[in-house]
């Protein structure tokens, strides 16, 4: 096993009195795709925000490429090669598509590299090239998601955090975007940490998965094996009929701890 690119050890983060994640430990090996699954409010977004320095953890440590990055400011973390595609796209609505992409490359000084990455991004998402001069706020939701992913690529990350890229997209577009996400991983060698509600597709593309419930990690395994687990099939892939679901869930949950 190579040294992990990213390690979280016992991380706890809170919003004021609300403790959102408790004792989260996970590791992401280089060049892999790792998925974190969990229901609404489980704390998935909080984990990613803690990694990229938007919020500081109260306890625990975050190491990236062997260096402690918790408590560092977000700009420093981006410069070290870690880019975040936030939940809900968060494009700059009144800037052109091209300017949005260039903002993704704000921390870079290698003009040639930026130009090359721009070409590659336009290769992944030709629609962005067509709309390069248009305001980003006028793109459709799916196109904005493409822009958000592309903008992060422009930062030339070694590790990319993806927060629910399928949010609000049709199944077809979700599939298209995930195909590109996998290509980014294979062709650019970018490591991906992916957060998803759409467990089916996340388990399909990822190598390793963590299951998060109310701020704690309750299960982890290779995605191959996760796909076979009965709890996962039932609660995340919806493969059993809804019968006595409430009661069942309660019992199952115990076996995860």
């Amino acid at each position: 096993m190579p040294d992990p690119l990213l390690t979280l050890a016992n991380v706890e983060s809170a919003y004021g009195p609300v403790r959102a994640i408790r004792g989260v430990s996970l590791s992401v090996p280089p060049a892999s795709i790792v998925a974190v699954l969990g229901a609404n409010g489980a704390g998935k977004t909080t984990i990613l925000k803690t990694i990229s320095g938007i919020i500081d953890p109260q306890k625990g440590s975050v190491h990236f490429k062997g260096e402690a990055i918790h408590g560092m400011d977000p700009a420093g973390i981006v410069r070290r090669g870690l880019c975040h595609v936030p939940e809900g796209r968060e494009v700059f609505p009144m800037l052109s598509v091209l300017d949005n992409l260039m903002m993704g490359a704000y921390t870079r000084t290698d003009r040639d590299g930026v130009r090359r990455d721009l070409e590659q991004v336009f290769g992944y998402f030709p629609i962005l090239k067509e709309r390069a001069k248009q305001q980003a706020g006028l793109l459709s939701g799916g196109q904005q998601q493409m822009l958000a992913i592309s903008r992060a690529i422009m930062g030339q990350p070694e590790l990319m955090l993806l927060d629910e890229p399928s949010l609000g997209l049709s199944p077809k577009l979700t599939r298209e975007i995930f195909d590109i996400v996998v290509r980014i991983n294979r062709e650019r060698g970018t490591t991906l940490l992916l957060v998803e509600q759409n467990a089916a597709i996340a388990l399909e593309v990822a190598d390793y998965g963590y299951v998060l419930e109310v701020g704690r990690i309750v299960m982890e395994d290779t995605c191959e094996r996760l796909r076979e687990k009965e709890d996962i099939r039932e609660f995340y892939l919806g493969m059993k009929d809804a019968g006595a679901r409430g009661e069942r869930r309660w019992k199952r949950k115990k076996t995860w701890r």
């Binding site: 990229s52 938007i54 977000p74 700009a75 420093g76 973390i77 981006v78 410069r79 880019c83 975040h84 936030p86 968060e90 494009v91 700059f92 609505p93 009144m94 800037l95 300017d99 260039m102 903002m103 993704g104 704000y106 921390t107 903008r151 930062g155």
Partner: peptide, 23 residues
């Protein structure tokens, strides 16, 4: 200018500007 466009970006979406590593 890069800095000028970044200033616009901050005024449109400050959180996203943080995500991009804009100081």
């Amino acid at each position: 200018t890069r800095v000028g466009v970044a200033m616009q970006a901050i005024s449109q979406n400050q959180l996203a500007a943080y995500y991009m590593g804009i100081p």
